[in-house]
Amino acid sequence: DVEPGKFYKGVVTRIEKYGAFINLNEQVRGLLRPRDMISLRAENLNVGDEIIVQAIDVRPEKREIDFKYIP
């Protein structure tokens, strides 16, 4: 289970104008929005990159997770 405030290692699987999709594993995926990329620009991300993200909002009923990148 993903808990708000905890840090996780994930892999960038898709990049859109509104953010990057980060997979923690095959069943868990969330969104890293540009406003939550402190000191990281979306254009510096590539599909396949491994990054550490913090879960900031977890909505299990919608199967949605928002992440924040903190260097």
Score class of each variant (00 low, 15 high):
Asp1Cys: 15
Asp1Gly: 13
Val2Phe: 10
Glu3Leu: 14
Glu3Thr: 13
Glu3Ser: 11
Glu3Ile: 15
Glu3Gly: 04
Glu3Asn: 07
Pro4Phe: 08
Pro4Arg: 12
Gly5Arg: 03
Gly5Gln: 03
Gly5Leu: 06
Gly5Ile: 02
Lys6Tyr: 08
Lys6Glu: 07
Tyr8Pro: 01
Tyr8Thr: 01
Tyr8Phe: 04
Tyr8Glu: 01
Lys9Trp: 13
Lys9Val: 12
Lys9Ile: 12
Gly10Cys: 07
Gly10Ser: 01
Gly10Glu: 01
Gly10Lys: 00
Gly10Phe: 05
Val11Pro: 00
Val12Leu: 04
Val12Thr: 01
Thr13Trp: 03
Thr13Ala: 08
Thr13Leu: 02
Arg14Lys: 10
Arg14Leu: 08
Arg14Met: 06
Ile15Gln: 01
Ile15Thr: 03
Ile15Leu: 09
Ile15Gly: 00
Glu16Arg: 06
Glu16Thr: 15
Lys17Glu: 12
Lys17Thr: 11
Lys17Met: 08
Lys17Gly: 08
Lys17Pro: 14
Tyr18Trp: 15
Tyr18Phe: 13
Tyr18Thr: 06
Gly19Cys: 10
Gly19Glu: 06
Gly19Asn: 03
Ala20Trp: 12
Phe21Gln: 04
Phe21Val: 13
Ile22Pro: 00
Ile22Asp: 00
Asn23Leu: 10
Asn23Thr: 14
Asn23Glu: 14
Asn23Ala: 15
Asn23Met: 14
Leu24His: 01
Leu24Trp: 02
Asn25Pro: 03
Asn25Ile: 08
Gln27Ser: 14
Gln27Asp: 12
Gln27Leu: 12
Gln27Cys: 13
Gln27Asn: 14
Gln27Phe: 15
Val28Glu: 04
Val28Cys: 08
Val28Arg: 02
Val28Phe: 08
Arg29Ser: 13
Arg29Ile: 13
Arg29Cys: 13
Arg29Phe: 10
Gly30Ile: 12
Gly30Cys: 10
Leu31Met: 08
Leu31Thr: 06
Leu31Arg: 06
Leu31Gly: 02
Leu32Lys: 02
Leu32Thr: 02
Leu32Ala: 02
Arg33Asn: 06
Arg33Gly: 07
Pro34Ser: 14
Pro34Tyr: 15
Pro34Met: 13
Pro34Phe: 15
Pro34Val: 15
Arg35Phe: 06
Arg35Cys: 11
Arg35Trp: 06
Arg35Val: 11
Asp36Met: 06
Asp36Pro: 02
Asp36Tyr: 10
Asp36Trp: 10
Asp36Cys: 11
Asp36Leu: 06
Asp36Asn: 13
Ile38Asp: 12
Ile38His: 13
Ile38Cys: 14
Ile38Gln: 12
Ser39Asp: 14
Ser39Lys: 13
Ser39Cys: 15
Ser39Ala: 13
Ser39Trp: 14
Leu40Phe: 07
Leu40Ile: 13
Leu40Asp: 06
Leu40Pro: 05
Arg41Val: 12
Ala42Arg: 12
Ala42Tyr: 15
Ala42Trp: 15
Ala42Pro: 15
Ala42His: 13
Glu43Ser: 12
Glu43Leu: 12
Glu43Ala: 13
Asn44Tyr: 12
Asn44Asp: 15
Leu45Ala: 01
Leu45Ser: 00
Leu45Ile: 12
Leu45His: 05
Asn46Gln: 15
Asn46Gly: 09
Asn46Asp: 07
Asn46Tyr: 10
Asn46Ala: 14
Val47Ala: 03
Val47Pro: 05
Val47Ser: 01
Gly48Ala: 01
Gly48Ile: 00
Gly48Trp: 04
Asp49Tyr: 06
Asp49Arg: 03
Asp49Lys: 03
Asp49Leu: 08
Glu50Met: 14
Glu50Trp: 15
Ile51Tyr: 02
Ile51Trp: 01
Ile51Asp: 00
Ile52Pro: 01
Ile52Thr: 09
Ile52His: 04
Val53Trp: 02
Val53Thr: 00
Val53Ala: 01
Gln54Gly: 02
Gln54Val: 10
Gln54Cys: 12
Ala55Asn: 01
Ala55Cys: 14
Ala55Leu: 09
Ile56Val: 10
Ile56Thr: 08
Ile56Glu: 03
Ile56Ala: 06
Ile56Met: 12
Ile56Leu: 12
Ile56Gln: 06
Asp57Met: 13
Val58Gly: 04
Val58Glu: 02
Val58Ala: 04
Arg59Asp: 07
Arg59Phe: 04
Arg59Gly: 05
Pro60Asp: 06
Pro60Gly: 08
Glu61Phe: 04
Glu61Met: 07
Glu61Ser: 11
Glu61Trp: 05
Glu61Leu: 08
Lys62Arg: 11
Lys62Ser: 11
Lys62Cys: 11
Lys62Pro: 05
Arg63Thr: 07
Arg63Ile: 06
Arg63Ser: 11
Arg63Phe: 11
Glu64Gln: 14
Glu64Met: 10
Glu64Arg: 08
Glu64Pro: 02
Ile65Asn: 04
Ile65Pro: 04
Ile65Glu: 03
Ile65Ser: 02
Asp66Arg: 14
Asp66Cys: 11
Asp66Leu: 15
Asp66Ser: 10
Phe67Arg: 02
Phe67Cys: 06
Lys68Gly: 11
Lys68Thr: 06
Lys68Pro: 04
Tyr69Trp: 09
Pro71Gly: 14
Pro71Glu: 12
Pro71Lys: 11
Pro71Ala: 14
Pro71Tyr: 09
Pro71Arg: 13
Pro71Ile: 09
